[in-house]
Computed example of a mutant assay.
Amino acid sequence: MSDRLPPLTALRAFDAAARHMSFAQAAAELNVTPAALSFQIKSLEEHLGAPLFRRLTRRVELTEAGRALAPGAKDGFETLMAAWRSARRVLDSNTLTVTAGPAFTAKWLAPRIYEFARAHPDIDLRFAASLRRMDFDQDEIDVAIRFGYGPDPGVYAVPLRREWVTPVMTPDLAARFPTPDSLTQAPLLFDDSIDFLDPPCDWPTWFRAVGITFTPEHGPHFSQADHAVDAAVAGAGVVLGRRAMVIKEIADGRLVAPYGVALESKARFRFLCREGAEQQPRIAAFRDWILAEIEKTSFISDALTIIPVEDVPAP
């Protein structure tokens, strides 16, 4: 039996039919007629010297040889498609596709992106706001901004500035609740998106950091950080604001951080891309722009007393 590979079109027809277990659905996927698809599979079976499908009434099923071939054919076409997409992206020097969480996209990227566009008019940005962990090749993503602990094996990763939380509120609310003690009487908001942090960066921990034993039990809870921040900007209450989500609101005066004490988590935002891709001009330009933008508001972090959450006494 020869090891010579059969035609790629025949293997592609087999892969589609094996995934759908239907010649008609496979033909529709490949935009060919069922007769043309059946011809390709028949030629593949002749090349192999054995049937790959049992043709039953109104359905097909794989033979033993078909079951042996199907996983490799599927993986092979997925690998080919990923390589093709990678090659196309290397040649596409104008488009940069970035994925980040919805809150980071809304509160950090979107308000600043005009600056990048003005500095790099030749780069067309595409954003995919999602918390789903995307695949750089399969999802055609160039850059990912992700929050968590890492590590990030197999990719190029740049940790961004350390992440902290501190109570933020409108200037009017700050005037009404001028001290941490008075904050126990304030309407408090809860950002549940950071409940996964360990140790927790929550209200009881922050109060312990400033020497107060207090566990708030009531107040609106938000699953998205940007929604919690928007509620604080509207004057609905005080939120433990995450640096990336509130830094621009503080810089612009819509929110204030009057108590000067923040909790630092080891979780950080990271800039991620495929290893080696960081050298591509459009990716390097985006990374350098993000780092430069972060530095513009570093004075706000520098003005805070930042306490590692691990150093806060346990309850």
Results as ranks from 00 to 15, higher is better:
195 D>W: 01
196 F>K: 10
196 F>N: 10
196 F>M: 10
197 L>M: 14
200 P>V: 06
200 P>W: 04
200 P>G: 07
201 C>P: 02
201 C>D: 09
202 D>M: 04
202 D>Q: 12
204 P>A: 03
204 P>I: 01
205 T>P: 10
205 T>K: 11
205 T>Y: 05
205 T>C: 08
205 T>N: 08
205 T>L: 08
206 W>G: 07
206 W>C: 14
206 W>E: 11
207 F>G: 04
207 F>H: 12
207 F>P: 11
208 R>Q: 13
208 R>E: 10
209 A>M: 05
209 A>C: 06
210 V>F: 07
210 V>D: 05
211 G>E: 14
211 G>V: 11
211 G>Y: 09
211 G>M: 06
211 G>I: 11
212 I>T: 08
212 I>P: 08
213 T>C: 05
213 T>F: 09
213 T>D: 13
214 F>S: 04
215 T>W: 02
215 T>Q: 08
215 T>I: 04
215 T>R: 12
215 T>D: 07
215 T>L: 02
216 P>S: 03
217 E>I: 03
217 E>R: 13
217 E>A: 11
217 E>F: 01
218 H>S: 10
218 H>C: 00
219 G>W: 00
220 P>M: 03
220 P>T: 09
220 P>Y: 01
220 P>W: 00
220 P>V: 00
221 H>T: 10
221 H>W: 04
222 F>A: 03
223 S>W: 02
223 S>I: 12
223 S>T: 12
225 A>M: 03
225 A>S: 15
226 D>P: 00
226 D>H: 15
227 H>N: 08
227 H>K: 12
227 H>F: 04
227 H>G: 00
227 H>D: 13
228 A>C: 12
228 A>M: 01
228 A>L: 00
229 V>A: 05
231 A>S: 15
232 A>Q: 07
232 A>V: 01
232 A>P: 04
233 V>T: 10
233 V>E: 15
233 V>G: 04
233 V>F: 03
235 G>I: 01
235 G>D: 08
236 A>Q: 15
236 A>N: 13
237 G>E: 04
237 G>T: 05
238 V>T: 14
239 V>Y: 01
240 L>K: 06
241 G>I: 01
242 R>P: 07
242 R>L: 13
242 R>K: 11
244 A>I: 02
244 A>S: 15
244 A>E: 10
246 V>S: 10
246 V>H: 12
246 V>P: 11
246 V>R: 12
246 V>D: 10
247 I>M: 15
247 I>Y: 02
248 K>Y: 04
249 E>L: 07
249 E>C: 11
250 I>D: 09
251 A>C: 10
251 A>D: 15
251 A>G: 07
252 D>C: 02
252 D>M: 06
253 G>L: 08
253 G>Q: 04
253 G>T: 12
253 G>I: 08
